[in-house]
Design a protein around this nucleic acid. Structure first.
Lengths: 170, 170
DNA sequence: TATTGTTATACTCTATAACTATA
DNA sequence: TATAGTTATAGAGTATAACAATA
């Protein structure tokens, strides 16, 4: 159990083993979903972290420090991440005339926004496809159960609340 | 939707929004689990890929080429990965006297095995803990639904079958 | 003096191309 | 000639420490 292995707990294929147990089920599902996200990002020649960056910027123009916090990175890593995205024309650094002169805000370029929206749409479609295997009743049941899991964890760990989509792990 | 963002679709905390929708529920769950795996690996000063390496080696001593395939890496990346793990005393390269003289098998050291087992146990505990929030009935229902998802996907994508635990994504 | 962001430096992880040594 | 694995090289991603500019 615990399968630090994606795909693996498959055990003999097509066997009547239909329950992996809660731990393996969760771990393997996470690998499955992450692989989908990674594939989608890769189709745009992006890493998951670059895709997350675009996702986070879909509805805000945070300063470097806030961006670092949103992505769970050090400020130095964020500098590098933004540098590479800027070099590719996906984001830009903007300075706000009034306020702290030291601050820099990061914003999507038109191209960056185009890709960010594409990514969001593709993730929705692709992930929905996996779930489409389940009959409607089970799908909404699953949705609710996972939502409870996620929301309870967020409550407990005081996860901040951001109403924006498109941010993966790291 | 599609939230390439972990933790984020939290929306206003403690609101009565109890259903994120199947897509966000799956995506956020995947981030939640991956973060747990990453935290556990980090407690042992390991990256997720190093933890996966140990997990894969728990029940085999594959050649470099097979290992690369199991981890989804190029053979060159695998050489580097094994080099670093070997330098830390977690794995060792062994040559089998008979057979292809070019082949190298990778095996856990005692220390590597100790850590591999620890990781597996911790993943089991930690992941089970999140699920523990759900009442028993819901938990087994969730386990079955996710298992269906994972197993159906494995069937469709002809995912190989390995009876070993501890292998994450990348 | 404290904070914001960048620079300098170092490692891990990953890939492609070229190479060595068997087969 | 083909295969197993390593070496060479390059670049992304990450972190810590030191620094510049502004508060």
């Amino acid at each position: 159990m615990s399968s630090l292995n994606p795909s693996q707990a498959t055990a003999r294929r097509s066997s009547r083993l239909t329950d992996l147990g809660i731990v393996d089920a969760l771990v393997q599902t996470s690998f499955l979903v992450q692989e989908m996200l990674d594939d989608i990002a890769a189709e745009h020649e992006l890493s998951i972290i670059q895709a997350r960056l675009l996702g986070v910027l879909r509805d805000r123009e945070p300063r470097m420090a806030h961006l670092a916090q949103l992505l769970g990175l050090s400020k130095q890593s964020t500098t590098g991440l933004v540098n590479r995205a800027e070099r590719r024309g996906l984001v830009r650094r903007v300075s706000i005339p009034v306020g702290d002169e030291r601050a820099v805000h990061v914003s999507l370029t038109d191209e960056g926004r185009r890709i960010a929206e594409l990514l969001a749409a593709q993730v929705s479609m692709r992930v929905a496809t996996v779930a489409a295997d389940l009959p409607e009743t089970n799908r909404s049941r699953l949705s609710m159960l996972l939502s409870q899991l996620v929301l309870r964890d967020a409550d407990q760990h005081g996860t901040d609340l951001d109403p924006q989509p498109m941010r993966p792990t790291r």
